[in-house]
Design a protein around this nucleic acid. Structure first.
Lengths: 194, 194
DNA sequence: TTATATAATGAACAATGATTCATTTAACAT
DNA sequence: ATGTTAAATGAATCATTGTTCATTATATAA
């Protein structure tokens, strides 16, 4: 029964993901989500408090799932550079695999400023991972000590997100994950190289 | 008369900017905008076709204004590195000066995928500037020749936007423009330095 | 001052879509 | 079979808001 309930929740979330990604949260209607999920409008309210709740649950579910993978991939690197590379690779791979999620994370999460308390903040978790990586890189002597770490973190995250946005805007036509290595190269060596 | 009409347009746009930035396009109401601008609800429709039109005009107006400044600041640099530095400085300065614009550009423009044909696309213009700068940098021998230019551009733009987002989220508490130099340093030399 | 044109008002209208709930259907135990 | 509980339905409700337009105010000209 519990299992059954979870299954239906998931079905609705999946439908909502498709509809939110296609139309955006505000233009998406409950009827569209219900149709996409193959249930009646009213059924949605047996599983979710309201429209916003659907979005929050979607975000929380995906955040938990994806962040766990990111965490693991970082863990598998043996030095800072490898950890950074693994993180970026994982990030791009996961977003490429689930384009609806990518669209929703890139637009809705940024858009809503009020929800900070209600959803798991993937950016914050991500930035914390980066802090550790940079710090380790400095200890290992592979990254500069004169870095403004707070800025360097945003710089890294901002750039990946920019790359993802472009991919999303291009309708996912090319291989996003293939951007990981050249991107990490830019992070490490910059435009000048060495 | 024409002048008068433009003035009122501007008043309304300014009010709309404040309201859109505070509540986001969808939650903002015409009544709020009218109140903020000090006019009646109906008056808005003497100057704008509809709610969306207000947003478009706002974006177009600001894009034109800000992009012209960016273009000029790039022009003033005598080599690629200086041009890049000027561009980033100008970008951060302008967005810091007009926080409502910053909020709207960072969230609304990203959010709406349908408007591409109706608004001037500042990202595209920006990326074109970057193309020229990088190309020049390569010719001058100051930037690597093995760059994937398409990626390098997104990388730069993504990172600035990430930095602006953080500043916006932090309620503009610190000096955004001061980030320009360390950011450009990261672009050029990366995390490893030289 | 009076007439005319222009601009502004804000209450009323209409459409939309989230949410509710009386009713129906399905599942299951006795 | 039959009664009981749980789940699902979707038409009706209700609140919200973008938009309109008959009316009022203001500016201008004669």
């Amino acid at each position: 029964m519990q299992n059954n309930k979870e299954k239906k929740c998931y079905t609705i979330l999946k439908g909502a993901g498709a509809v939110f990604a296609r139309y955006g949260f505000y233009k998406a209607t409950i009827s569209q989500i219900a149709a996409e999920a193959g249930v009646a409008d009213g059924t949605i309210y047996l599983y979710f408090k309201n429209k916003e709740d659907i979005l929050y649950q979607f975000i929380n579910y995906k955040t938990e799932f994806v962040f766990e993978r990111m965490r693991k991939s970082v863990e598998e690197g043996s030095n800072a550079e490898e950890k950074l590379r693994n993180l970026i690779k994982c990030h791009l791979r996961e977003f490429q695999t689930d384009r609806n999620m990518a669209v929703i994370f890139q637009s809705e999460v940024r858009y809503r400023r009020d929800i900070e308390s209600q959803i798991k903040d993937i950016s914050k978790m991500y930035l914390d991972l980066l802090s550790d990586i940079i710090e380790q890189g400095q200890i290992e002597g592979e990254m500069r000590h004169d870095l403004f770490v707070g800025l360097a973190k945003r710089f890294i995250l901002g750039a990946v997100e920019g790359v993802i946005n472009t991919w999303v805007a291009a309708d996912g036509k090319y291989d996003l994950a293939a951007m990981a290595d050249p991107l990490v190269d830019l992070y490490l060596n910059g435009l000048k190289g060495r």
